[in-house]
Every structure is written in C-alpha cells, then in structure tokens.
Design a protein around this nucleic acid. Structure first.
Lengths: 208, 208
DNA sequence: AGGCTAATGACAGCCGCTGACAATTGACAA
DNA sequence: TTGTCAATTGTCAGCGGCTGTCATTAGCCT
C-alpha cells in the first residue's frame, strides 16, 4: 500500500464494494444493476468487472473475510479438544472477534443486513451454499490433520464437518428469518442447536 | 394427454429436455447455448423459455422427479420407525425403485451422467444445493407431523433433517467424484456414512 | 522531461432472459 | 365442413451480465 497507484486502486475497490452492498441492502440485489454501482462510484462498468468477477462476488465479498477468520479460529484450537468441540468453540470465539475484522472494511450493521439479503435472494443463497460446501472441505482437511488421520481414507473428518455444517446452515437460516438480527441472537441459536443435535438423532422423540 | 395439442406439447417438452441433457452431458453445461437446444429441436428460442424457466431448470428437471419420489418414500414409512431410521430406509428404498421412475422420462444412464455434470458445474451445484435446502424444509415438516411435534416450536425435526441432509450431500459428492457411477455404489456409500456418523461425532478419534 | 507500464474508458458483441404482437394451428360448435 | 375461438409458436426488440479489444489516461522511474 505504498504507491499512490496502489492506494487509489484500494480506494476504488472499497468504494465499489461499499456502494454495491449499500445498494443491495436498500433496493435489493436483483434490482441493482452493475451500471448503477459503477455509475454511483463514477467508474465505467468495465472497471467494476476488473475488480469483481461478477455481481455475485461483490455481494459475497464479506463472507470471504469472515470465513477466513473462522478458519483461522479452527486452526488455533488446542489439540486436546475433541473435533466437534473444537468446531463449536471456533465459531463461538470467531463471532466474539468478528466485529473488529468486519469493521475494518464496512460497518458491522451493513454486514448483518447483507447477510439477510443473501439468505433471501435465491441466486445469492445458492452461491453461498456452494461456497459453504467448499469451506467444509477445507475444514475437513484441518480436522484430519489435527487428529492425525487421512481425509480420504477415514470418512470421519468429512462426516463430522458435514453434520456441523448442516447445523450451522440451519442456524443461519433461522437467524435470518427471526426478529433479532444481532450476533448474540445467532450465537444463542447456535449453542442451542448444538446442544440439541444429539437428542434429535438417537432418541425417539415421543418418549419424553 | 387426450387431445392432439396436449400430446404435441408433451412431445416438444420431452424433446427439449432430452436434447438439453444430451448436450449438457456431452459438450458441457456452459458450452451449451439455449439456441443450440432450441435449434436441435427445431424450435424458436422463445419456445424453450415457455417450457423451462431457464437453462438451469432444464438441467435440474430430473432432480425434481427423483426428489418427489423420495418425499413419497418418506411419507410412506411406518410410524413406529425412529425419525432417522425412517429417513434412512426412505432413501434406500427410494433408490431401489428409482429406475422405473427415471426411465419413464429418460434413460437412467443419462440421469447418472447428468448428476455428475451438476456436481461439477459450479452454477448448477449451487442451484442444486439451494433446492436441497428447500427439500430439507419439506422433510422437516413431514417428520414433525409423523412425530406429532410442532416444527417451529421443536428444533429437533429441522436438526435431524439438517444432519441427514449434510450426510447425504457428502455422499453425493463422494459418489460423483469416485469411479463407480452405479446406484449400488451410491447406496453403499450412504449406508457406510450413516453407520459412521455416530462415532464421528462423539468419540475422540485418537482412542482406538 | 520523457519513456514505460498499469489502470481506465469506450465500443462491440455474446448469451440468458422477457415483453409484446402477429401468425399459425388445433378445438369445438353450428 | 366451415368458421370462430383459444392456445401455441415465431419474430422482433430490448435489458442486464459479462468479455475481448484497443485506444487513452495517469502514475512510475530514470
């Protein structure tokens, strides 16, 4: 970030991203044209596509940041924790420190609003789910290394991550359709779900 | 399917679908233009869009059929089965009878090949995952009714389905990247995964 | 100051998709 | 059978996302 050129590039990218998210969260994703965004930043449409591979990438750019943050949290979990517990702690601790990470780019409120837009826009939700699948693969790798097993020979890393991921996506969905759009609400939901996932699997639900 | 008109419509739709899948599986989804499909069936591009909401819908049309088949299998499970066991039996039994359902529309081999195209085409995989999320919601409803609980008050139906869905998606992915593209291979994978999901969650993986 | 290179703009064009209107074709009754 | 009505299709125009190409601008470096 030394030269003027680099600073200028960064400012353009930031402006494009912020403007895009602002428009997406106010008028909606589909209703926002790339020309709208580029126009608002006073830049040609072509330039937008030089910074973002597509509209989608701009809409999901923040997710990249938080995902990386979460992956880091998983890697830093102490090795003695059981796999599922490590994942659990990683998300909880990741959310604790999410604020600073996100605020470095955009206001956290914008991030939360955008989250809801993603969840309620079919094409964005689809892209988000696909990315989640990729992330699960990465986490499986981390878990396997932690536990000293082979990801391809032992199905347990991918299975554990698949289950955890399923629960987390359910949490996201419930949170985005609920009334409390705070991080605390999301955390509470996640904790509750992770507590109840065991009972939901084995027991007969009618005998209690 | 009485009048000539209706038969003609059906034939056009079938031709479009078959041609689309044939092209998708041979030259790839992205490389296939709607004009290609319409042209091969000797129909205007506009007509294609009157039968399918988009390219995507044609590519995923077979999934609709099999999903409906699977939902039916879940609904017909005896009420005494535990929730997860009912889901397990439903998929296994659903696959047993999948052949007839699919062959009524296209050769089963084409269905299997298309499955791999979906799994390896980012935009199709994304759409597929989003649909899977919707299906999970439907299954949660069925499960809740079976067990006599309220879907919105009791998190267990959605949790169980989220876990089951996570495992099934992992199964799909493994199957599509493996070497054996038969239904039997998929069934074997699913059984194996469902057996091992319990151990993967609770135990410490290093103590055995 | 002047040459070099990176960033941008302008333009043309492909593809997916939609609305509107006209032309065609099957359905059905007189 | 024929004429009317309605459904199906084709044609055309146009929008939005996205890409390649080439000229222009603007920062960098000697």
């Amino acid at each position: 970030m030394e030269t003027l050129r680099e600073r200028k590039k960064q400012r353009t990218r930031d402006a494009l991203l912020r403007t895009a998210l602002e428009l997406f969260t106010t008028q909606g994703y589909e209703q926002t044209t790339v020309d709208d965004i580029a126009g608002a930043v006073d830049v040609s449409q072509r330039t937008f596509f030089r910074y973002f591979a597509g509209k989608e990438e701009a809409a999901l750019a923040l997710q990249d940041i938080t995902v990386e943050h979460f992956l880091e949290a998983v890697r830093e979990r102490p090795p003695h924790e059981a796999p599922m517990e490590a994942l659990r702690q990683a998300v909880l601790e990741g959310w604790d420190t999410l604020n600073e990470v996100v605020e470095a780019v955009v206001p956290i409120a914008l991030y939360l609003r955008m989250y809801r837009v993603i969840e309620s826009t079919p094409v964005l939700l689809a892209a988000h789910l696909r990315r989640s699948a990729e992330i699960e693969e990465a986490i499986a790798g981390i878990l396997a290394e932690r536990e000293g097993v082979d990801v391809d020979a032992d199905p347990r890393p991918r299975l554990a991550v698949a289950v955890f991921g399923g629960v987390m996506r359910l949490t996201e969905r419930q949170w985005s359709t609920g009334e409390d759009f705070s991080l605390d609400a999301m955390r509470a939901l996640a904790v509750s779900h992770l507590e109840q996932v065991g009972p939901a699997l084995s027991e007969s639900w009618r005998t209690r």
